[in-house]
Design a protein around this nucleic acid. Sequence first.
DNA 1: TTGAAAGCGCTACCAG
DNA 2: CTGGTAGCGCTTTCAA
Lengths: 351, 351
Amino acid sequence: MKPTLRAVAEAVGVSRSTVSNAYSRPDQLSTELRRRILDTARQMGYPGPDPTARSLRRGFVGAVGVLFTSRLSYAFTDPFAVRFLTGIAEAAERHGSSLLLVPLPADPAGAGKAVENAAVDGFCVYCAGDEEGILDTIRGRGLPFVTTAARPRAGDRWVGIDERAAARSVAEHLAGLGHRRVALLGDDVLSDAATGPLRVADVADVPHPTTRERLAGFADAFAAVGVAWPELTILSAPGNTRAAGAAAVRALDALAEPPTAVLACSDVLALGALDALAAAGGPRRAISVTGFDDIAEAATAGLTTVRQPGEEKGRSAAELLFDPPADASAGQILLPTTLVVRTSSGPLPRS
Amino acid sequence: MKPTLRAVAEAVGVSRSTVSNAYSRPDQLSTELRRRILDTARQMGYPGPDPTARSLRRGFVGAVGVLFTSRLSYAFTDPFAVRFLTGIAEAAERHGSSLLLVPLPADPAGAGKAVENAAVDGFCVYCAGDEEGILDTIRGRGLPFVTTAARPRAGDRWVGIDERAAARSVAEHLAGLGHRRVALLGDDVLSDAATGPLRVADVADVPHPTTRERLAGFADAFAAVGVAWPELTILSAPGNTRAAGAAAVRALDALAEPPTAVLACSDVLALGALDALAAAGGPRRAISVTGFDDIAEAATAGLTTVRQPGEEKGRSAAELLFDPPADASAGQILLPTTLVVRTSSGPLPRS
DNA sequence: TTGAAAGCGCTACCAG
DNA sequence: CTGGTAGCGCTTTCAA
């Protein structure tokens, strides 16, 4: 059994407060006494105040919780999520805070429990699919949080982009190149949707908010050139992995009139699409592909995409948590996005 | 102020134990009573038992600490580290445990404090540079841990590869192709070394254990074909980033007789080397480059490298922590490595 | 500069 | 099935 602070106090012959002070408030006792206490403690093998007990007493933990909607291990699969985490880590380092990555079980009840059991001072929530339940649980605990939801809720601290406008910008680029018969590729377009083309009556039916906003943005641009929603091919790629993106695009082969362009909701999916097209060869190669996020591989793959600042998103989120702006209206940070045109998009091949 | 368990107990008119049981041991009370308690709790806005208090009482936290030697935010910079984390996350998910990422300040004292203050049940330590101090602190706390150090210390739980043999395997490949004048490229070869060529009297002087083992492995292979240590050019690329790798290789231009091959201690550095060579063009392009780890980009870049199983390393480490093998001798897991030959290495250009 | 007292919020044993 | 008791290990007024 490890010795406790109490044991050290008894050994040295001082009160527990004094030992506590020796660790946490060196200015409250003589250097001499402090040294004696610390030395004895070392000799006895006392590892210093127990973090949990200290947290309980102080009412402060020194850790921020990070919540990903999807499975935690999947989060590392998307380079954009990793960049977000990097930003959070930077800010946390600066504030001497740790990061608690909390895996959320798929079932809402389990997820709630996980959030309730997390010993943290606040949360950064990364684009949770059905995040409302989660946010309510956090509110229930009275803990501060920052979201990156597709759209901010009044009063919540938030950092994000204008998803819809950003999506619209790539779509306009493609429309400008003459594309009219296009496919929109998203992760998890409808819950439990299989890989491949899909019928979605209304974009509002898409459950995942981010996917919904991006699809809506794509649709906006095409509506403006006379292509209505039902004419768009919707492709679902469950999992947001490169493989899923490739599989979804391969499913296009079944179509009589394949699209001339594929607009993906993420770079990971878009890269998968490129994989599938490259493997197919032939006229398929002429299909334009666009992504979203601008991860590092997008540049090497020549992928046209929308850039959003990943590290900064994470950094801002964490800073918003650590230093709440006095003025609540400053609690929502809208980050800029840029259309990055590369070689994966081009004019219609003349047929 | 949030209500406490005690307040709920009083409101319902039962003892605190009963309320506690309602949350943690449903089988200890009637469904009826439980429902009544939970309902009142909800009404009062009681968020459930406080995680910190519960941990203190139970003596168990439900989180494993993850320690990276380098700055936490740098850890996400290396895809291999991310894969390691992915593996840990998978195992943690399975065990319902959270991951506490603890940023370690550069100074040893600060790092010690950080480790002492982490509320966790155990640690996974990722290849810490001077990790001995850290490990001692963990031992001092009496917490279990698993390392991925370059070499296991008897009795410690460990998962890793035979660094030296693995490094030797790529070097032999290059030596077999006829290379004799080569440069070895490592992160942080000597502390505070500037970018570029370096004089290292003895490989044993390299402080970072992993770098040291890998360099030693490279050297082994060349020694076997008659190229002694002092004839090898040592290149330091502080930071283990692609940019650092590129910069270090550019520094080769200053040499009268540039090497015909560059052996990097990580894929990230190797990719940087390729960047620099591609930008240089001309005969430089003929320089062979090899990496270490086999990250995803290695494949697309055609990088010859040594593959080590990243996710599995993380997964095994976490499993070793969660389910300590009864037989202590099973506490050290040696993972296999493979030489992966791609296009970045080739025979000597005839001069 | 030091120490005594009073919990932080909860759980687990054990007797009823 | 229920509740009293006894802390988990520490910090922090406040008075000496």
